[in-house]
Simulated assay, not measured.
Amino acid sequence: MLIVLFRTIILYLLVVVSMRLMGKKQIGEMEPFELAVAIMISELASLPMQDTRISLTHGIIPIITLLTLQTLLALLQLKSEKMRLVFSGKPSILINKGKLDLKKMKDEKFNINNLMEELRMQGYYNLSDVEYAILETSGQLSVIPKTELSPATKQDLKIKPPQENLPITLVLDGKINFKNMIVAKKDETWLKQMMKKNSVPSIDEVLVAMLDSKGKFYCQLKEKNQQ
C-alpha cells in the first residue's frame, strides 16, 4: 500500500512539474501538438500508478522524453517561422471584410452554425456586424467588429472613422517577413527609413516590428540577454 502511495506522489509531482514547464496555458489555448503531449503524459503517468508490476522508470523516462521534445519544439518555433507553420499552422480568416470565406471554412471543417454560435458567445448576433473573424491556431475565434459598431460609441456620435485593418508583422526576431512586406505594400528602403527614424541601429536587434491595425509603425527591440 505504501509503495502505491509513494509511486502516486512521485508521478503526480512529475506531471505537475511537466505541465508547469510547458507554460501557462488553459486546455482551450493549447496548440494541437501541446494538447497531444499533455494527453500522452497523463496516460504514461496513470499506467505505473495502476499497475505496480510496471517499473516506475518506465513511466518517468517517457514523460521526461516527451517534455524534452516539447521544449525543443517550442524553442524551434520561437526562432523559426517555418517551424511554427509546420507544428501550429496559421490563423484562418473566416470572415474577411464582412464577407464569409466559404473555402476557408470548408478547409477548417467549420460550418456556419459553429461560426454563429462562436459569434453569439462573444456578443455578436449578426454577421453584418463583423468585419473580421479569425480562427486562431488554438481553435478559438477572434472577432473584430465593424468600427462604427465597436463599444466606443462612435456611431452614437455620428463619427465615421476609417475601418481598422489586421496588424501586419514585418520583422520578427531580427528576420524580415518579405511576404508580409508585399501585403503591406512596403519595401526594404521604407523599412530602413523607419528603423532610422526609431533609432534602431540594425534589423538584427529588432524583436518585433509591425504595422498596427491603424497603419502605424510599431517596433520593439530585443533585450540584451535575449541576443
Rank of each mutant, 00 (worst) to 15 (best):
L2T: 06
L2G: 02
L2I: 01
R7W: 08
Y12S: 14
V16F: 14
V16Y: 11
R20E: 06
K24Q: 06
G28F: 13
E29C: 05
M30G: 01
E31V: 00
A36H: 09
A36F: 13
L44T: 02
L44W: 02
A45S: 06
P48C: 03
D51Q: 12
D51W: 04
I54F: 08
T57H: 04
P62L: 02
I63Y: 07
I64R: 01
T65A: 06
L67M: 08
L69D: 04
Q77I: 09
K82D: 05
M83T: 03
L85C: 14
V86K: 02
V86I: 07
S88N: 08
S88Y: 01
K90I: 09
N96G: 12
K99L: 02
K103E: 11
E108R: 05
L115G: 03
Y124Q: 08
Y125N: 03
S128M: 10
Y132R: 00
Y132W: 01
S138R: 10
S142D: 10
S142Q: 11
P145V: 15
P151S: 01
K158F: 14
K160C: 09
N165W: 00
L170Q: 05
D173W: 00
I176D: 09
N180S: 09
A184M: 06
Q193M: 08
K197G: 08
V208K: 06
A209V: 07
M210L: 15
L211G: 02
G215R: 07
K222V: 12
N225F: 12
